[in-house]
Design a protein around this nucleic acid. Structure first.
Lengths: 198, 198
DNA sequence: AATATAAACGGACCGCGGTCCGTTTATATT
DNA sequence: AATATAAACGGACCGCGGTCCGTTTATATT
């Protein structure tokens, strides 16, 4: 009988061909996205570029949103480390209020880079709030808010803050409504001040 | 030569067959949605039920999201009248701060009824912020916020408030995160207080 | 009433995301 | 090395949203 797979610790226990195909697919996806943008990526195209069958793509990532999620996860890894264990003002050396403000400021600054990717990973509309990247950010915001005396319901307040940072909204404010990133950032700072005031 | 159509004043200048088909389609769509839910509505199905060609559906509503928008617009007409010209606390007889609070409270209370419809009308992710229903609500919030002394940037603050009332988020908070409507409403009231405090 | 014409119609068609299931292959076991 | 088997593979297939374009029709004009 075959050993049952552990299933823990990420993808370390994948079969060799599976791991190789994952890598091929992610590389091909990144190529397409950087060449022609997020919208232009189709799953058939991706399968062809990576030299695998279409079924394999869906076996690996579940859906188009899942693939985007994987790309986003990879692209955000540096940011995640920064706000979890990096230097001030994002990291734990800084006071909670300033970390909150720095968090949003960084997110808004990165809008041009990762905005499209985030929006593509959010298409779902319902499960978008369960994506690992978002869940992690949310628990981070909740933790920071819980450390401040003026906040009654840190979890719900975290959702309120995160809602403003949603990629679709920020892109709309910047591109369609024509607001400058400075103005949006200022709005973020004021919002954080407001919800944390005693 | 034929008279050029005015194009103004809604759909009053539609050809008779066009107007009839619009009505047939909206009725059929409402039937399907109330019978089997928003998700179950397909454009082919709708065309068949209404007894028209598929092209006609898209000629009328542009897209699935456009159709949902039309349904939502119809469903929300009463609410729109309430907050624009109805009695207190939603209407103009009440003070701005209380109207703001009543607005969100009403939206949260109506979640079970129109939440799914709103989410379906929002699928786009980018143009969702340009839909007439939302634009109207947004300008209403902006106006109320502009009447309060503590608000520096009413337009941006309106977006921040509206972001929390987004249907996908509220449904997630209520159904997935398990928060009661009372708690969510309380969060809304606190948020309004916070962003309007001097 | 006859006519012209812009508007509306409708269904064949397209490309996409996603599924299904018979085939292949990596790996544990002997 | 041979074997068993669970996992991975891949491409035909499906249903959907959306488009295209030849055909029909409401309506203004004569």
């Amino acid at each position: 009988m075959q050993m049952s797979r552990s299933g823990e610790a990420g993808f370390g226990c994948e079969r060799l061909d599976a791991a190789r195909n994952r890598r091929l697919l992610l590389e091909a996806a990144l190529d397409i996205v950087s060449e022609r943008g997020v919208e232009a990526l189709t799953m058939d195209d991706l399968a062809r570029r990576a030299g695998v069958g279409k079924g394999t793509v869906f076996r690996r990532f579940g859906s188009r949103a899942g693939l985007m999620q994987a790309l986003l996860d990879h692209a955000q890894r540096g940011f995640q480390e920064s706000y979890m264990s990096g230097p001030a003002p994002l990291g734990p050396a800084e006071a909670p209020l300033q970390r909150l403000q720095a968090f949003g400021t960084a997110r808004i600054r990165a809008l041009e880079l990762t905005g499209e990717l985030r929006r593509a990973a959010d298409v779902d509309g319902f499960t978008q709030h369960r994506h690992p990247v978002r869940v992690l950010e949310l628990s981070h915001l909740t933790m920071l808010l819980a450390a401040l005396p003026g906040v009654r319901d840190p979890e719900l307040t975290a959702y309120q803050l995160e809602a403003f940072l949603e990629a679709g909204l920020l892109l709309h404010l910047h591109r369609t409504a024509g607001m400058s990133l400075e103005r949006i950032t200022e709005g973020w700072l004021k919002l954080v001040e407001a919800v944390t005031a005693e």
